[in-house]
Computed example of a mutant assay.
Amino acid sequence: MTNASSATSPDDSLDPTADDAHSPDVIQEPRLWHKDGWMARVIKNEDDDGWAVEMIKDGEPEPALVGPWTMGRDKKNPKPLDTSAFNTLVKTASEVLRRHEQQLRALMHKRLGVRTDDGDIDVTLDIVPDEYEPYAVLTALDAFGEQIAQVRVAPNFKLTKARAESWAEGGFGRIE
């Protein structure tokens, strides 16, 4: 005996054109969407009577973005999430994360040029934010990008032009 429902409806998991809304990882509810590694959740705004939406990237403990959300027609409940809103929220939250990563990279990496008797060199400082023993690495590179020297320094080492020149003039030895 055959199951009539399986005989009349195709198995979406075998159909590459099946709507991904049926995927177990995709949730599309009025106040909660989860798709493509992102979750949008409409929440009560703690600051007033309105609503907010938070965007959380899968695996992250904190939202990447929290912002106001539009009221529905009844002026009491939130407007339901839809495809367009979700896509806009993903784009905005991704941009916030990208800018945060750029800012973090700028804090953790410094580079400056120095003239020496042997030619121009670049000196870089890269902070390694180890949870238990953070440190930084000071590196000298020649005009071709080849490493001349490298030393480990304190994570709070301040890279200045004067310190880089002094390090070069001292033969790239240990630096205090």
Rank of each mutant, 00 (worst) to 15 (best):
A154M: 08
S9M: 11
I148W: 00
S13C: 00
Q28E: 14
L125C: 03
K110I: 02
H22D: 07
T139F: 00
L125W: 07
D36P: 03
T116N: 05
D25H: 12
H34D: 03
F157N: 00
G145N: 04
L14Y: 04
E46A: 15
D12E: 07
V151D: 03
A40K: 05
Y132K: 14
G119V: 14
K158Q: 09
I56H: 02
R174N: 05
G59I: 13
S94D: 10
D19G: 07
P68L: 07
A140K: 08
R98C: 02
K57T: 05
L97W: 02
V123L: 00
G113N: 11
D49P: 03
A52Y: 10
R152E: 12
V26I: 10
A143R: 14
I127D: 04
T139L: 00
R163S: 07
T116W: 02
A52F: 06
A162S: 11
D19N: 13
L138Q: 04
G67V: 11
H22W: 11
G171Y: 01
A21T: 14
T116D: 05
S5H: 13
M39C: 11
F144T: 12
V53F: 00
N3K: 04
N87Y: 08
P61M: 09
D15W: 02
R111F: 01
P24D: 08
V151A: 03
D25T: 15
D48Y: 06
M71A: 11
D36Y: 06
T160D: 01
W69N: 04
I127W: 07
V151W: 03
G173Q: 10
T92L: 05
V90E: 04
M71P: 02
Y135L: 03
G119Y: 15
G50T: 09
D74R: 12
R163F: 02
S23A: 09
S23M: 03
S166H: 08
T160K: 00
A106I: 09
T88S: 11
Q102S: 09
L32H: 12
G113C: 03
Q102H: 08
I56T: 15
W167V: 08
D20A: 05
M71C: 05
K76G: 10
E101S: 10
A164F: 00
F86C: 03
A18K: 00
L14F: 06
A143F: 09
I27Q: 01
P68H: 09
M71E: 10
N87R: 15
F157Q: 00
M108G: 01
D36F: 04
N3Q: 06
F86G: 01
W38E: 01
G145V: 07
R41N: 06
F172H: 05
Y135R: 05
